[in-house]
Amino acid sequence: MMQTSRLFLDFIPVIIWALLAMALVIIMLLASWVLRPHVLQNSEKTSTYECGEEPVGPARISYPYNYFVYTVLFVVIDVMGAFLWLLSSSTLLWANATKYEVVWQVVVFILIVMGGVGFVMKMIPRSFLDGKETLDVYRRAKAEREKEQYPTGGH
């Protein structure tokens, strides 16, 4: 076996760092458990805000769908960036033997992906992207709820 420098030997500091990080988290959790006062826990103690705000409604509500568009766009740009990262870590665009053929492929690749992204941004309406209609619905619902806010006796 031809023995050159193995890759994982270069990453030994990463492993040491990761072990140190895990040990630090465990030590901090244990120390705070040891040092904190152990008092009686009741529903007032374990609520989100012990004094002040009154928690209203479930914490897990439905987020608006239109922000999912940005996640899908991010994944496409992410994959495009990975391909260009491979290209930038090589010498293909500098070597004379390859640069004249590869550069056209790079241009076509970027044009296809960015053309798709631009088409999508044109295709969906503007209010879908910035979430104005969703915000309007939220504001109307919130205003309606505030009118009938404390009929059952809050504070």
């Binding site: 994959v79 491979l86 870590s89 090589s90 293909l92 390859t98 492929q105 798709g116 992204v117």
Partner: peptide, 24 residues
């Protein structure tokens, strides 16, 4: 990079087409 971009460059364009198809 030579395998992917120079010898089999059509794969990259196919991946781009697959990506924008699923995106659209």
């Amino acid at each position: 990079a030579q395998w992917l971009w120079f010898e089999n460059g059509i794969y990259v364009q196919m991946i781009a087409l697959i990506m924008i198809t699923s995106l659209v």
